[in-house]
C-alpha cells in the first residue's frame, strides 16, 4: 500500500470526504429529489386527470347534443301529431256543423212548408166559404127567395164545382 502514500491518501481525508458526501446526499435527498420527484408524480396525476376530464366532458357534450337532437326530433313529431289531431278534430267539428246545419235547414224548410200548406188550406176554406156565401147571396138576389135546406146545399156544391 506504499503507492497510496505517493498519492497522498490519508484515511482521515477519505472519511472526511465520505462524511461530506453523505451530508450532501442528505440535503439533496430532502430538499431536491423528494420534492421534485413528488412534483413530477403529482403533475403526472394532474395531467392524467385533466385528460380524463376532458374526455369525459367531450363525451358529455356529445351526449347532450345527441339528447338535444333527440328532443328536437321528438318535439317535432309531437307537434306534427298535435297539428294532425287538431286538423282532424276541426274537420270533424266542421262536418258535424255542416250536417247539423243541413238538418236544421231541412227541418225549418219542412216546418215552413207545412205552415204554408196549412195557411193555404185555411185560405182555401175561407175563400170557399166566402164564395159560397157570395153565391148564396147572389142566388137570393137572382131567385128572390131564400134557399134553405137541401136546395141551398146542392146549389153551393154545384156552384163551387163550376168555379
Amino acid at each position: 500500500m506504499d503507492f497510496l502514500n505517493d498519492f497522498g491518501v490519508k484515511p482521515v481525508l477519505l472519511a472526511a470526504q465520505a462524511v461530506n458526501f453523505f451530508i450532501l446526499l442528505f440535503i439533496l435527498k430532502k430538499f431536491l429529489y423528494k420534492p421534485i420527484l413528488g412534483m413530477l408524480e403529482k403533475r403526472k396525476g394532474v395531467i392524467a386527470e385533466s385528460m380524463k376530464n376532458a374526455e369525459e366532458i367531450e363525451k358529455k357534450l356529445q351526449k347532450i347534443s345527441e339528447e338535444r337532437e333527440e328532443a328536437l326530433r321528438k318535439a317535432g313529431k309531437e307537434a306534427e301529431e298535435v297539428i294532425k289531431e287538431a286538423t282532424q278534430a276541426a274537420g270533424q267539428i266542421i262536418n258535424e256543423a255542416h250536417v247539423k246545419a243541413g238538418e236544421d235547414i231541412k227541418k225549418m224548410i219542412a216546418k215552413s212548408e207545412e205552415a204554408m200548406k196549412r195557411e193555404r188550406e185555411k185560405l182555401h176554406q175561407e175563400v170557399r166559404e166566402e164564395i159560397s156565401n157570395l153565391v148564396v147571396l147572389a142566388m137570393q138576389k137572382v131567385t128572390g127567395k131564400v134557399i134553405y135546406g137541401k136546395d141551398q146545399k146542392d146549389l153551393i156544391d154545384k156552384s163551387i164545382k163550376e168555379l
Binding site: 461530506n20 451530508i23 450532501l24 439533496l28 430538499f31 431536491l32 420534492p35 421534485i36
Partner: peptide
C-alpha cells in the same frame, strides 16, 4: 464549496416548487 453550491441550489429550487 461544491457541497455548499449544491445545497444552495437544492434549497432555492426545492423551497417553492410549482405545478
Amino acid at each position: 464549496m461544491v457541497t455548499a453550491v449544491l445545497a444552495v441550489f437544492a434549497l432555492l429550487v426545492g423551497r417553492n416548487l410549482k405545478l
